[in-house]
């Protein structure tokens, strides 16, 4: 294969990474933007989404497409419920004090990882894709499912944007983000908003994982990479900025695809992590954001 098509393939792979990353990162960004909580356990919500998708694919009979559709609905709900529970039992009692919540979510990370190891085991297991067809390009065939992932992710992101910008629920969320005390004075149940936002963040990570799991197998340690990449995306995009997060996800996903194809993947990760550290040091509001961390 010559250079041009090879680059195209790298970019298409990068698009799939970007699509999934954008979903996971928007979840992290929402939680930070509205609750001011840095959720270190976010990657484990992603992992739980993938692992629970495997369980659903085992329990639901019939063609893979039915089981996959069920996983697409059930897994985000399940993970969202766990997230809401964690918020109510732990984070709320810490009064969302920044350093205490980070330590607590590190604890949550280990608890969820161990739970997955104990109930699911150390093996990586595949989940069948809902459909299999190849899109034949002049130079190579490409998985139709991967293209569907990109489309699905775009739809969900559009939905999240509409929810935040146009709906009454979004208005309440933004009011809480803007001023928690005033929102409370206007009769908004801030506790419920926080639990809901944490559930939404976890649910988005789980949804991203369900979409990726037919391509990448489910494993109990799979949460680490999405966590770091989501952090990178959210920081570069500017914390709490939805548009910035999506743009940064595209930037990171595409460059990850290209660099990993032509150079070593580890080198790509080293460059990305150092870049983020330096962005935080010299431009703490991110490349697109307005507020500092």
């Amino acid at each position: 294969m010559s250079f041009g098509p090879f680059l195209l393939l790298a970019l298409m792979e990068g698009m799939v990474t970007s699509a999934v990353l954008a979903l996971a990162a928007v979840g992290l960004s929402l939680v930070f933007g509205i609750m001011r909580v840095v959720n270190v356990a976010h990657g484990e919500f992603f992992m739980l989404g993938a692992v629970s998708a495997w369980f659903v694919s085992q329990w639901v009979p019939g063609p893979p497409a039915v089981a996959f559709a069920a996983a697409l609905i059930l897994c985000p709900l399940f993970v969202g419920a766990i997230a809401a529970l964690a918020d109510m039992v732990v984070l709320k009692r810490l009064n969302y004090e920044p350093e205490a919540t980070i330590v607590a979510t590190i604890g949550l990370l280990y608890i969820l990882q161990q739970a997955a190891l104990s109930f699911y085991g150390p093996d990586a297991r595949p989940v069948p894709a809902p459909f299999n067809f190849r899109v034949q390009l002049p130079w190579f065939g490409y998985s139709g499912y991967k293209i569907a992932v990109v489309a699905a992710s775009a739809l969900v992101l559009l939905g999240v944007w509409r929810l935040l910008a146009k709906s009454r629920v979004g208005l309440i969320m933004r009011a809480t983000q803007y001023d928690r005390e005033t929102a409370r004075a206007f009769g908004i149940n801030v506790d419920r908003v926080y639990a809901g936002v944490f559930a939404l963040g976890g649910g988005l990570a789980a949804l991203a994982a369900v979409l990726i799991v037919p391509i990448q197998q489910a494993h109990y340690l799979m949460g680490t990479d999405p966590l770091l990449l989501s952090f990178i995306v959210v920081i570069i995009g500017g914390l709490g900025s939805l548009r910035g997060t999506v743009i940064a996800a595209l930037l990171i996903g595409l460059s990850d695809g290209v660099i990993s194809t032509f150079f070593a993947p580890t080198l790509a990760k080293i460059v990305a992590t150092l870049l983020v550290a330096l962005v935080l040091v010299f431009r703490p509001q991110g490349l697109f954001g307005r507020r500092a961390l």
């Binding site: 840095v38 920044p98 350093e99 980070i102 770091l228 952090f231 920081i235 070593a264 580890t266 080198l267 990760k269 080293i270 992590t273 150092l274 983020v276 550290a277 330096l278 935080l280 040091v281 010299f282 703490p284 500092a292 961390l293």
Partner: peptide, 28 residues
């Protein structure tokens, strides 16, 4: 020298990222 220009949560994430880059360098 670099990380102490930040504070609080940003300091935590910057140190985390530097350590991760170091860990990956060992693997590389």
């Amino acid at each position: 020298l670099l990380a102490l220009r930040t504070q609080g949560v940003a300091f935590m994430i910057v140190t985390l990222m530097f350590a991760q880059a170091g860990y990956l360098t060992i693997l590389y």
